[in-house]
Design a protein around this nucleic acid. Structure first.
Lengths: 232, 232
DNA sequence: CGCCTCTTTGAGCTCAATCAAGGTGTGTGG
DNA sequence: CCACACACCTTGATTGAGCTCAAAGAGGCG
């Protein structure tokens, strides 16, 4: 468990704290703990009382919820700089709407709910930043919903593309997904089965569009992936 | 086009303005226009420059976006008291992410973006209310996403139930959906085809679970609908 | 009165789910 | 250190829920 101070430079580089001084950040994150999660470690579980929220420092966490039939559905991937569970903090006696599970070794700055109520909510610029974050999340959901009727190939292609875009790979060259993601996880995100996802992606592997090295997916020909998005 | 003053008592009854005086509301909604929309009238179109946002006064509006293959996908139903397009107002040169179309005769208080920037964003309690609204919307999306793998029957049942719940029909007795909604619209919300939705709902009609009178859906036996949600 | 949107039903087809079986790598406890 | 469990990947064969296509009736509107 590293100290908050050690994480300061990282924090300052994140969008959410843009324009704030280091001492301001120290106040906002007072008593914060840096949590080191191993692969598949759980930060919190659906339904737990939400006593803390926090910032992803490195790695990634998946936010998921069990469906009525028991299988997990992945709601969102949280990458470094993102705030997790911020939006329930303002509620009365909040519980987590999802579970948060590390994908590979990751680090998370755990902040008490008290800080949110007493500091974050009082900082006007921070509130607006959080609002942007929520808006952005809604936009993501909308973009996904538009794909409902599309065949699975298009959905998988769209997912991979949005995942690289988070990393802003403006070049058309080869790029690597920022998170180690399994085919099962892709399936759980899209509401499909592993088998179907595998069938689609192994086609792509054969035609040299993607490559996988130990759950890290390399996109070799983004243009070909993009062309999967169009009708016909 | 009624005057803003006439709509004041309605506005004051809405959650979002709870705790604000009428004069405060007048300032927030200054120069607001009450728009009377007929069935299928469009308030704004996807991609239009977003110069205004507003509050649904009566009736309902559907927010939809065309899918890459041309068909419309319905993202959300906005009922009286809801704010439409608030979350893009804070952006730089915002465009509407969806189209807003009236479902049956409806009324909408149209407010200039200027008001949002200069008044709404400066009012701390209002910002928090908007944040709640966004959170609530995210929760809705999550609840929907959990159903992805469920068979269509469950999805339709779940949709109808959430639509009545907005009206807070705590009784188990008969209740009417607050909006006139067609089977096509249900299909477009769920990413299914009209035919499939019709086949499911006409089964329900035959077994007396629901009744339809001119695009108003009556739920006769909510319990039976609820039992559709469970696995098996 | 003709146009348009919505509803309904039937028949056939297809995409992706299910089921089944085998292979690999990693962590864990005896 | 081995074996055993567990999570993931892969491929093939079979099946079925929901889509597509087709055709027709019913109500509303200019």
């Amino acid at each position: 468990m590293t100290t908050l101070e050690a994480a300061l430079p990282e924090l300052a580089s994140f969008d959410i704290f843009n324009g704030l001084s280091k001492s301001q950040i120290m106040v906002l994150c007072a008593h914060g703990q840096v949590i080191h999660s191993g692969h598949r470690n759980e930060l919190f579980h659906v339904g737990d009382e939400a006593h803390f929220f926090g910032v992803v420092l490195s790695g990634a966490y998946k936010l998921s919820r069990p469906s009525p039939m028991g299988e997990d559905v992945i709601i969102h991937f949280s990458l470094p700089g993102e705030i997790i569970a911020a939006f329930v903090m303002a509620q009365n006696e909040p519980t987590y709407p999802v579970s948060a599970i590390a994908m590979g070794p990751s680090r998370f700055l755990k902040i008490k709910r008290k800080n949110y109520i007493e500091e974050w909510q009082k900082n006007p610029s921070l509130i607006l930043k959080i609002q942007n974050l929520l808006s952005h999340r809604i936009t993501l959901f909308q973009d996904q919903k538009v794909m409902i009727k599309a065949p699975l190939v298009q959905k998988v292609a769209a997912l991979l593309i949005t995942l690289i875009e988070k990393e802003k790979t403006s070049e058309l060259a080869e790029s690597v997904l920022p998170i180690p993601i399994t085919r099962k996880e892709i399936a759980d995100t899209l509401g499909a089965t592993v088998e179907s996802v595998i069938r689609i992606m192994s086609e792509w592997s054969k035609s040299g569009i993607i490559k996988t090295h130990d759950s890290h997916i390399h996109i070799i020909q983004i243009d070909k992936l993009m062309s999967c998005l169009k009708p016909e």
